[in-house]
């Protein structure tokens, strides 16, 4: 991994940098897997190696491909980095030994999650129970972060060049539309399965790794694939921008509504126990609903981001790289 990062520093070709970053993401994901963090590995694989690589490529397509070979102040940077790094290394000396089972991190709060979460929430995946119930408010915040980014990107990128007349939108892959019939047919067969798989991940999160976020990413990726294969125009006709925005907003509202209903029912915000008479069933319902909200917001924001990026004018030098 260190090697990959060092290579990133030296590379001037941004596409290669992004590809290496994708590899880095994938390596990180495998490391998470080895560390027993299956949910995190799943997310990192889809985000680090998937979405962020895709976004960076699209952004490079809209800007410049080469890094200008100029160096500003490597010495100062080096100094700052060495001080910070030195401080961190200094800090590691009093850390508990790696993997030690009785480190303070494992013996205090986490203990209860492992021992009692099944009785209190009723689902085997502890990560899901902590994520959506014990620390459900953090997850709400996370959805809002995504929503904020989506809004920010629309606010920055949309409609600036599209005043009035609807011209044919420039896409990053006009060429594919004509050339790759095989790709399109394969895509047509594949896309329904991707969307189905997304739904599976959405509702299976309670038992295995997965959940609203990962499902949203997969669903969004499916739509993006469709847009890439059949052209942005058609994709936009199928899914209108304003509708997607509303879905994203609705996801946040759904999550919030669960919280509001729970305090109307006499609990506190996001207290799923009071949603139904049986607390465990209430937890089930609550988690199901909020994961749905997460999935909706994430999927629509990803689509929004991609559409807005791809809708900008810009040099199209890497359209072939992307398609191939």
């Amino acid at each position: 991994m260190v090697g990959v990062v060092v290579a990133i520093i030296w590379m001037k070709d941004l596409i290669a940098v992004v590809m290496l970053l994708g590899i880095y993401g994938l390596l990180t994901a495998s490391f998470f897997m080895a560390m027993d963090a299956v949910d995190v590995a799943f997310t990192e694989a889809s985000v680090g190696a998937g979405i962020s690589t895709l976004l960076l490529l699209v952004a490079i397509a809209k800007t410049k491909r080469k890094e200008h070979p100029s160096r500003h102040k490597p010495l100062l940077a080096l100094l700052v980095v060495v001080i910070t790094g030195g401080l961190l290394i200094y800090g590691t000396y009093d850390m508990p030994i790696f993997g030690m089972a009785d480190a303070p991190a494992h013996t205090h709060v986490a203990q209860r999650y492992i021992e009692d979460s099944y009785d209190e929430i009723g689902i085997p995946n502890i990560v899901t129970s902590v994520l959506s119930s014990y620390r459900g408010f953090d997850t709400f915040g996370e959805v809002v972060v995504i929503f904020t980014a989506g809004l920010g990107i629309i606010g920055l990128l949309s409609t600036v060049n599209g005043t009035g007349t609807r011209k044919k939108l420039p896409t990053i892959n006009d060429s594919i539309e004509d050339q790759h019939i095989v790709l399109r047919i394969v895509g047509k067969i594949l896309i329904p399965f991707i969307l189905l798989f997304a739904l599976y991940v959405q509702f299976h999160g309670e038992y295995g790794p997965g959940g609203g976020f990962q499902a949203g990413v997969i669903f969004g990726a499916g739509i993006i694939l469709y847009a890439m294969l059949f052209g942005m125009d058609i994709a936009r006709r199928v899914i209108s921008q304003s509708l997607i925005q509303l879905i994203a907003a609705f996801g946040v509202l759904l999550y919030g509504a669960v919280g509001v209903v729970s305090f109307l029912n006499g609990g506190t915000f996001l207290d799923y126990n009071v949603l139904l008479e049986n607390p465990v069933a209430g937890q089930h319902l609550g988690i199901l609903l909020i994961e749905l909200g997460v999935g909706m917001t994430v999927a629509s924001v990803i689509i929004i981001i991609f559409f807005n990026f791809a809708g900008r004018k810009g040099p199209q030098q890497i359209s072939d790289d992307l398609g191939a």
Binding site: L87, L88, Y90, G91, T92, Y93, D94, M95, P96, A103, P104, A105, H106, T107, H108, V109, A110
Partner: peptide, 30 residues
């Protein structure tokens, strides 16, 4: 780093548990 040394994220709880490990370098760095 704080979490690693105390096992908690709640501020009130942290305030109770940090003094025990206040002398460690890790807490200083955090």
């Amino acid at each position: 780093l704080m979490y690693q040394m105390t096992g908690t994220l709640n501020m009130q709880d942290l305030a109770e548990r940090l003094p025990e490990v206040a002398q460690t370098r890790t807490v200083f760095v955090s």
